[in-house]
């Protein structure tokens, strides 16, 4: 019996509100995180991701309060990301009820942080988030598709190849990769399936596909064609286009193992 494929609604949170941008900009309000998370928990979401998209140091206290409020209503795994720079940040998030943390920029500045964090808290707790964009410059004169990773919420290019980076993170002890296509994010055009498949096939830890879901078919494609272990989406659920229940039913109807 294979594991059920996971459906993960994502809350992008800015100053205590759920928001959603297109290509990482153009923010739209989508409600109170506690209410939204509670609704997804009740509808049968398999996990919830909570990303603090501004993640400035002065809103840490607010973040902990919101995470604590969300965690008290949610009895499925809760991953929290945004602005994690040191082990103490992880400790604080676990203390207020997170089950896993998602680390992006800090892993790029200091890859050893992933080794330390997974040694200290266990790999199961450490998700490495990768924001990747297709790079024509690298791809030129080369048959293979290439993607470059970005930090700071997609604002800073790094010159690092996404597939190699995912492999390195897995080696250092990451328990899971949250892979976001920046080209796809918020566009509703579907996941970057080539990116998702390239990363998923290259590593032996689970991959969560993210960025670009507009239809329920896209969720199915992320698994069947992208080889992802879990699929993440935000705006299709926030604004009531689809419910978690409908999404799970569509995945089941496509022949995927899901928890209903």
């Amino acid at each position: 019996m294979p594991l059920a494929k996971r459906l993960i609604p994502c809350l992008d949170v800015d100053n205590g509100r759920v928001v959603k941008g297109v290509n990482f900009v153009g923010i739209r309000d989508a409600g109170d995180p506690v209410e939204v998370a509670k609704r997804y928990n009740e509808q049968g979401a398999d996990e919830i991701a909570f990303l603090d998209i501004t993640a400035t140091s002065d809103n840490r206290a607010t973040l902990y309060e919101v995470v604590e409020a969300v965690a008290s209503e949610v009895f499925i795994p809760l991953t929290v990301g945004g602005g994690i720079r040191k082990l103490e940040d992880i400790h604080q998030l676990l203390k207020v009820g997170a089950d896993k943390v998602s680390i992006n920029s800090t892993a790029v500045f200091n890859p050893e942080f992933i080794r330390e964090a997974s040694a200290h808290f266990g790999s199961q707790c450490i998700v490495v988030a990768i924001d990747a964009k297709q790079t024509l410059s690298i791809a030129k004169g080369d048959d293979a598709d290439r993607w470059e990773i970005f930090t700071h919420g997609g604002r800073k290019p790094t010159g690092i190849d996404a597939v190699q980076w995912a492999q390195k993170m897995a080696t250092l002890g990451a328990g899971e990769i949250l892979l976001t296509s920046m080209d796809g994010d918020g566009t509703k055009a579907g996941y970057d399936l080539a990116l998702t498949r390239s990363v998923s096939d290259a590593i032996s830890i689970p991959v969560i596909a993210s960025g670009g879901v507009g239809t329920l078919e896209h969720l199915v494609d992320g698994i069947t064609q992208g080889h992802a272990d879990a699929v993440l989406a935000a705006s299709i659920f926030h604004f009531g286009e689809y419910s978690i229940v409908q999404a799970k039913a569509a995945m089941r109807d496509a022949g995927l193992e899901v928890r209903l």
């Binding site: 594991l3 059920a4 996971r6 790999s123 032996s204 272990d229």
Partner: peptide, 13 residues
């Protein structure tokens, strides 16, 4: 077999 992802992370029966 080595084709399964480790850790096992998710919902199993």
């Amino acid at each position: 077999n080595q084709t399964l992802k480790i850790p096992q992370m998710g919902w199993n029966t």
